[in-house]
């Protein structure tokens, strides 16, 4: 009798462990092949200048090393790329989130129609914020000003995306 109970208990625990695994994968926590997605948001490449790399992460690549294209930007030029990538709120609860996207390097700025203060290339900034309800998506544009650069330079920047709950 005691032995039977013990076995039953194990079986129950096993079933519950399985359920936990399904929940985790079902909500899309870093599943491979799904693009750059987590429980809250998805980063969607929207132009030939961005793509999802082998590690499943969004990558912006305007260099001859881009797997699809060749080229770059010239010195003393300003390039404006509308909708380089987008950020989508994919949370399946009713979570409304505030997103902050920033870059660091000189000459690289961002804008998004979702950020009233930085909605166009004329008002681009190194840090932008916007609020997204579930299912909403914000396009992110980039301004590249190469007046401080020369041919042969490589601008290596980090795009940081963070989320908070609006107060």
């Amino acid at each position: 009798m005691g032995v039977k109970m013990y076995k039953k208990g194990l079986t129950t625990i096993f079933v519950i462990v399985l359920i936990i695994l399904i929940l985790l994968t079902g909500t899309g926590v870093y599943t491979q092949g799904d693009g750059d997605v987590n429980l809250i948001y998805e980063l969607i490449p929207n132009s030939p200048y961005s793509y999802i790399n082998d590690s499943g992460k969004l990558e912006i690549n305007i260099t001859p090393e881009n797997p699809l294209y060749d080229g770059g930007v010239a010195p003393d030029s300003i390039h404006v790329i509308d909708s380089l990538f987008s950020v989508k709120n994919v949370n399946n609860s009713s979570g409304v989130y505030e997103f902050t996207v920033s870059v660091q390097e000189a000459g690289v700025l961002l804008y998004s129609p979702g950020d009233i203060s930085h909605s166009s290339s004329n008002t681009a900034s190194n840090i932008i914020t916007f609020i997204l309800s579930p299912g909403e998506e914000a396009n992110i544009g980039m301004v590249i000003d190469t007046s401080e650069y020369s041919a042969g330079d490589l601008i290596e920047d980090i795009v940081s995306i963070s989320v908070t709950q609006p107060t």
Binding site: I40, E59, N61, I62, T63, P75, V108
Partner: peptide, 28 residues
């Protein structure tokens, strides 16, 4: 614990951007 953790985790992400500065005759 997992459920709560999922909602309040820190979802900061860093992604790389590479931009090559090239001569006018190799431009886009």
């Amino acid at each position: 614990v997992l459920g709560v953790g999922a909602d309040f985790a820190d979802y900061t992400a860093s992604r790389s951007a590479h931009i090559a500065v090239v001569a006018d005759d190799q431009e886009l």
